[in-house]
Amino acid sequence: MNLLITGGTGFVMSVVAREWLERHPDRRVVILDRAGLDEMGQAWFSAAGDRLTVVEGDVRDPSGWAAELNRHDISTVVHGATVTPISRGSAEEAARIPPESLMPATIVDVNLMGTVQLLEWARKKPSIKRFIYISSGSVYRHQGPDWAPEPLPEDGYVAPLTLYGISKFASEMIVNRYADLFALSAASVRLSSIYGPMDRTTESRNFRHVPNRIAQMALDGEVIRPNSLKPIGDYLHSVDAARAILALTEASRLRYRHYNVASGETTSIGDIIGWARQRVPDLRFEVADETSANVIQDPALATGMWGAYDISRLERDTDWRPRDGREAFHDYMDWLVAGRS
């Protein structure tokens, strides 16, 4: 019984794929993605041999992939294919021209109708026992919970403002309805801010969260100039995120339709710089104004989707637990160093 991952040549989904292959040496992974494996992806999967199949196709167009997928004995689906509108310019440019305004119809079409097409294919396959949809913390509003400083739960506080978040939440609801209509075991996971191995610039994603940027700058010997040491985020290493997703694919029972996948706590820019200095003792940093800062984040964004996510559902239904934040960050820095040698 094999795993299908859509969007599997990208960031988090490629980590999910390799974790599955390492966990199940007698099984296969089938990736459906518009993009093939780039150089980093080929190196990442070098040990997979013939247990990895990459099908290049648009998730919206089953005529280009359904017949090929039907050849494989697929029991589990992780649907991560998505369009994430990312600014390719400066923060000032993004403020003037919201990235989603450049391709609004494409965002909705891929994120929503791509999900519908995959569900249509999956519902006709009795072999499929679990369907996991990869959603995002972007479905949440900017404030909450009401009883600060508690982490943000899955129920309530959902009020997406962007087309990305709206399309993600709409897809969650469609997954729920298909699960009811066709007796499909399905759930959606809402990722917090993910960093770690395999994060690189691709056609659909060109964004690095604060831990990635600080780790890279520290190893490059660059002076880190944050606009403040106080801004926070719920940051999770990509390997931990992958293991959480796989834990849900293998859980004997899913008691909920929505699960946060996060560290469950916040970490500040100051914390991350401190962790980086433990690996690079001569790291230099100085707080700067926004005109000269190279790490800019709004200190006011500290609740709702920007704060800590409640992970108690995930911990109740699986044996997954996040690693200590410092340990995970150092693991990422070690991975970067190994890649540079």
Rank of each mutant, 00 (worst) to 15 (best):
A187Q: 10
L32K: 04
R208C: 00
G304I: 13
R88I: 09
S188T: 12
Q278F: 08
R200Q: 11
S252Q: 12
E19Q: 13
N2Y: 04
M113V: 09
P98C: 11
M173S: 14
S292G: 02
G89V: 03
L246Y: 06
S171L: 07
P299N: 13
L336I: 13
N227A: 06
V83E: 01
Q297N: 10
G270P: 12
S185F: 03
A187R: 07
A67G: 11
G64A: 15
K125E: 09
F11E: 04
I269D: 01
Y133S: 00
A148K: 08
D310E: 01
V139E: 03
L301D: 03
L119V: 05
I224Q: 06
W335T: 05
V337Y: 00
P85H: 13
V295Y: 08
S101L: 05
A91L: 14
L119D: 03
W65I: 08
G89L: 09
L112Q: 11
L314Y: 00
E315M: 06
V30W: 14
P281C: 07
P153S: 15
S192G: 11
S238E: 06
S238M: 06
P299R: 13
R340H: 06
Q117V: 01
A247R: 10
V239W: 01
G156C: 11
N2R: 06
I31G: 02
G325V: 08
T266L: 07
I273C: 12
E250H: 01
L119R: 03
Q216Y: 06
A308H: 14
E93C: 05
P197D: 02
S127I: 05
Q42T: 04
D310V: 01
G41F: 10
G8T: 07
A81F: 08
F11S: 03
R88K: 10
H209G: 07
W20N: 02
P151E: 08
R225W: 06
D240G: 07
P99G: 11
L161N: 12
S46R: 14
G264P: 05
L301M: 09
G114Q: 08
I132C: 01
G80K: 09
L32N: 07
N70M: 10
W320F: 10
I128E: 01
L102F: 05
I86C: 15
P197S: 03
N227L: 00
R243W: 04
N2H: 09
V287T: 12
P98M: 11
A218F: 12
D73Y: 03
D61F: 02
H142S: 14
H24D: 10
I296G: 08
S238W: 08
T84I: 10
L336H: 01
G221W: 11
I245K: 04
V189I: 15
S252F: 01
I86T: 15
L118F: 08
P149N: 05
G137E: 12
R205I: 05
D289F: 10
